[in-house]
């Protein structure tokens, strides 16, 4: 296989390489990492002709410019984002999300600041070295490649049909409504008033949010006497820790493997991807579900993604029927609202 590269011209902070993450090493303190929204990474990969978990670029918070070195490269964008292709020849044109596009040597793709999190997939994947079974970036321990302007990311040369790009019938939507959680594991460390406030009040996302977690602001959730500290135990993305100040922190993919704050509740798998897209000032509410409801939600989500991927079409061949079926498969409105 001959190689090409994507060079990062600008961006860096907020941009990382992500795949399904690193499992099997949490017992030695290695975070699981991986895409904050695996569905959206799967969508971008689908448009690029890849399997769902192939390593792509996760884009957050900043605009990014990428240059093709060698090539051609087939790339695809998924998310609430837009881009512009500046061809080496000097021509420019808009590139929409939810479609693939081919980059030739010297072409520059200028990607705007995404709302929330967006993904760029490359046909054949980003081929940086795997570390502990994953290419995901975890800069604190030098795992995966950290990105900065000037980095060249090895990619496969695209050998498919250059004439035929792929396009989705519509965006891949998320569920709406309150974020669904399962209670605990330390719900019993909280006062009745704190439990009522947690499930009955809106929380605002603060600017302190990154791939490790989201710090929320809302009513102070009071612990019972002596309940604010626990002997550290295992945590997982989605766990909602409440330190002594009573303000909850929702852990995300790069979170530590253990933590010493009580966890009032844990976001279910199906709703974790929605947290990839919240930004400072957004409002979150939480509601309680049980394991059976969590399973139903996961299954519905997997069906939605499978239907969405099945509706991908070569660009230029969209018809009303496919638009309708994709919208029905999505069966949801935008997930930006509380």
């Amino acid at each position: 296989m001959s190689h090409a590269a994507l060079e990062i011209l600008s961006g860096g902070i907020g941009v990382s390489i992500q795949d399904a993450g690193r499992t099997g090493y949490r017992s030695i303190g290695v975070p699981v990492s991986g895409a904050l929204d695996p569905r959206l990474l799967a969508a971008a990969n689908g448009l690029a002709g890849n399997a769902p978990d192939v390593a792509g670029l996760e884009l957050r918070l900043v605009a990014t410019a990428l240059k093709a070195v060698g090539g051609p490269l087939r790339v695809a964008l998924a998310g609430d984002v837009s881009a512009r292709l500046l061809a080496a020849s000097g021509d420019g044109r808009a590139v929409a999300a939810w479609s693939s596009v081919t980059l030739f040597d010297g072409d520059v793709l200028q990607i705007g600041r995404p709302r929330g999190t967006a993904y760029l997939a490359v046909a054949g994947g980003i081929l940086t070295p795997e570390m502990l079974g994953s290419r995901s970036t975890y800069a604190r321990a030098g795992l995966g490649q950290s990105l900065a302007p000037g980095c060249r990311l090895p990619c496969a040369v695209f050998t498919g049909d250059l004439e035929r790009d792929w396009r989705a019938a519509g965006p891949l939507f998320h569920a709406s409504g309150p974020i669904r959680v399962m209670p605990g594991p330390q719900l019993d460390h909280f006062s009745a008033a704190a439990r009522e406030a947690f499930f009955g009040t809106a929380f605002v996302v603060t600017p302190a949010h990154d791939r490790m977690g989201l710090r929320l602001a809302g009513p102070s959730l009071q612990h019972l006497e002596g309940g604010a500290d626990i002997v550290s135990d295992g945590v997982t993305p989605g766990a909602i820790q409440v330190p002594a100040d009573g303000q909850p922190i929702v852990l995300l993919a790069d979170c530590q493997t253990v933590g010493g704050y009580p966890k009032i509740a844990t976001v279910i798998r199906a709703d974790l991807p929605r947290l990839a897209h919240v930004e400072a000032g957004d409002v979150l509410r939480f509601c309680c579900v049980d394991a059976a409801e969590a399973t139903a939600a996961r299954r519905a989500q997997a069906r939605g993604l499978a239907d969405w991927l099945a509706a991908l079409q070569p660009a230029g061949t969209l018809d009303t029927a496919s638009l309708l079926s994709a919208n029905l498969a999505g069966a949801a409105v935008r997930g930006d609202e509380p």
Binding site: R26, S27, V231, G234, V258, R269
Partner: peptide, 18 residues
């Protein structure tokens, strides 16, 4: 079963719910 994480006083067992 995905992995297990022993701590001071507990073991967290991560699994694939599907």
């Amino acid at each position: 079963l995905v992995e297990r994480v022993p701590t001071f006083r507990s073991v967290t067992v991560h699994f694939d719910p599907d």
